[in-house]
Design a binder for these strands. Structure first.
Lengths: 123, 123
DNA sequence: TATTGATATGTTTCTCAAGCTATAACGTAG
DNA sequence: CTACGTTATAGCTTGAGAAACATATCAATA
């Protein structure tokens, strides 16, 4: 029930247009779909309603030239969803962006932490 | 009435704790308070209710060791608010973080834009 | 080929929190 | 001492998201 937002973390959202954007939520969802093989299971893991997960994937698939998630109904196990190559590429690019940004701004982040009233415990 | 979220923009939110965070909204608010000399006027400029602006400033003042905004009521003009030195420092650090991050991730951002269905017009 | 089992897709309803509007308190100037 | 523009607070409303439910889909398999 608790989010793991304890240590200072950077949340980056890339906004392309009015509706087109990608942020931490969609990235994590893609990651979990890749691991679970199912939109429903990935959403459950994140404490997210299935509808919401499904909608997020819908917008992602609509905003990129090629869909990021390929879902199949029926079949062995009743159905499932997998990350396409485009999906893997987008996720990897987003994670790379996050890492580069965090590294580039480490100095400022450190200075900001100094100014906090209660310095986050640990690291 | 329209947001200027047309060209691909990066929105960075730095999360320190459960409630402690700073992002584009609070940064812009601080900036405008510095220019306007009033929480109310700054909020109006952003199309934000006074209560919301006041709450945001309240959380900011509470999360840092020293308040970022100093407000007085009554007085000439009815009152006002100014940015403290700490406020100016925090704002500057946040902006610097933004710039560093955007520069560091320019390559990934460019690749992501290529994959979009309808490439954002301009630039 | 009819059944089954697991999921995807879509709809409706409800709740709760974010945000807006309205009100009080304040203090200087005229 | 009244008026004004602001800070500070209280009450209320709207809307986004969750929960629940209903239906569609399709491979295996018996």
């Amino acid at each position: 029930m608790e989010n793991e937002t304890c240590r200072p973390r950077i949340r980056i959202r890339i906004v392309f247009g009015a509706e087109e954007m990608i942020g931490p939520g969609k990235a994590e969802l893609l990651e979990r779909i890749d691991r679970c093989g199912s939109i429903a299971a990935a959403g459950r893991e994140m404490g997210m309603s299935y509808k919401r997960a499904w909608q997020l994937i819908g917008t992602l698939n609509a905003m990129f030239r090629a869909p990021l998630v390929d879902s199949t109904r029926g079949g062995p196990g009743g159905g499932g969803a997998v990350l396409t190559e485009a999906g893997r590429t987008v996720l990897s690019l987003y994670r790379a962006f996050e890492d580069e940004a965090a590294e580039a701004g480490a100095a400022q982040l450190s200075e900001l932490r100094m100014l906090l009233r209660d310095i986050p415990h640990g690291k």
